[in-house]
């Protein structure tokens, strides 16, 4: 139905968005790639000679890189297991008939709206602090030694904090998906004598497959870039015990002022994210046709 005239108008209307995003994508990306081949430290003014792939060699041979890579994967994997597992359980629960369902729903999704620095600091101080935190108090009440959450198990503690923030997201999306399941199908299965286990495995889980995939892929994009929660709780420590890739690049570029090395790390982070992104794009692309 579109005329020549409206096509031209459409192109004109799309172009501002395309142009700004193109600039936003290409300019910094090109600069990151360029800087990553220079010996460039803000503390050492002067020439920034081309050094080829030297920064990448430093970055990959730095023992902190391996730790950070493993931490990144543990952080993403740990949070995904907790939020998807917990999300399915919670979604099943919230789908049941109960009194005050709407209010419970509001309670459960609330953590998603708490800004990362607030949730990290509240958990760090008011719950995980061994002296003044609630967990410490509970431990002492049972005659146990308070657990030093952020020094003894820093990465695990951060996984817990981040899971609390993302559980609502998984729950909300999985609940939306469960509610679109037809009850006839379940009733038919029940008449055939199916228990909860087989109903869950053969009807509910397959129905949720698409929503679970969406949750995993979208969360992964955000979880690869966890930053604030680490900054305000452990600062990546002790040592590099809770440093992920994002935090490592931050240390190198903004704390050590090593533009070259930081850029090389940035490129590595981009490559890692792109591997994940390819899967996500394919998923959402399919939906566009549906």
């Amino acid at each position: 139905m579109a005329t020549q005239h409206s096509r031209a108008a459409a192109r004109l209307m799309i172009s501002p968005a395309v142009v700004v995003l193109l600039l936003w994508m290409i300019v910094p990306l090109a600069l990151t790639l360029y800087f990553s081949t220079l010996r460039y430290n803000l503390l050492m003014p002067g020439a920034n000679p081309f050094v080829g792939l030297e920064n990448y060699r430093y970055f990959f041979t730095d023992p902190a890189f391996t730790t950070a890579l493993v931490n990144t994967l543990l952080l993403v994997g740990g949070v995904l297991v907790i939020t998807v597992g917990g999300g399915i359980a919670l979604a099943l629960l919230l789908d049941q008939e109960m009194f005050g369902q709407g209010i419970v729903r509001l309670l459960v999704i609330a953590p998603f709206f708490v800004m990362p620095t607030v949730s990290a600091l509240v958990w760090k101080n008011m719950f995980m602090d061994p002296v003044n935190g609630l967990f410490g108090y509970i431990a002492r009440a049972f005659g146990a030694q308070p657990f030093e959450w952020l020094t003894a198990a820093p990465l695990f503690s951060i996984i817990l904090i981040v899971s609390w923030q993302w559980l609502p997201f998984a729950t909300l999306i999985l609940l939306t998906a469960i509610q679109s399941l037809s009850s006839e199908q379940l009733e038919a299965a029940e008449m055939d004598g199916a228990g909860f286990g087989s109903k869950f495995l053969w009807i509910i889980l397959p129905h949720l497959a698409r929503a679970i995939t969406v949750v995993i892929l979208i969360q992964t994009i955000f979880l690869l870039s966890i930053f604030a929660e680490i900054l305000v709780t452990t600062g990546g420590g002790p040592g590099v015990a809770s440093t992920n890739l994002t935090y490592l690049v931050y240390i190198q570029s903004l704390l050590q002022f090593d533009v070259g090395l930081g850029s090389a790390g940035g490129v590595v982070a981009i490559v890692l994210a792109n591997i994940v992104a390819i899967f996500l794009m394919r998923m959402i692309g399919k939906n566009l046709d549906a």
């Binding site: 579109a2 409206s6 096509r7 108008a9 459409a10 192109r11 799309i14 968005a17 395309v18 995003l21 936003w24 994508m25 300019v27 910094p28 990306l29 600069l31 990151t32 800087f35 994009i221 690869l224 870039s225 930053f227 890739l245 994002t246 690049v249 931050y250 570029s253 903004l254 533009v259 930081g262 850029s263 790390g265 940035g266 490129v267 982070a269 981009i270 890692l272 994210a273 792109n274 994940v276 992104a277 996500l280 794009m281 959402i284 692309g285 566009l288």
Partner: peptide, 29 residues
Amino acid sequence: VPGRQTRNVLMWMLSTKMLPPVGVLVPIY
């Protein structure tokens, strides 16, 4: 007014969201 490229433009826009912020932290700074 969807054209032949609409789908590609949309997917490309989404792909910019996949760019991890830390990847462009240095130049933006």
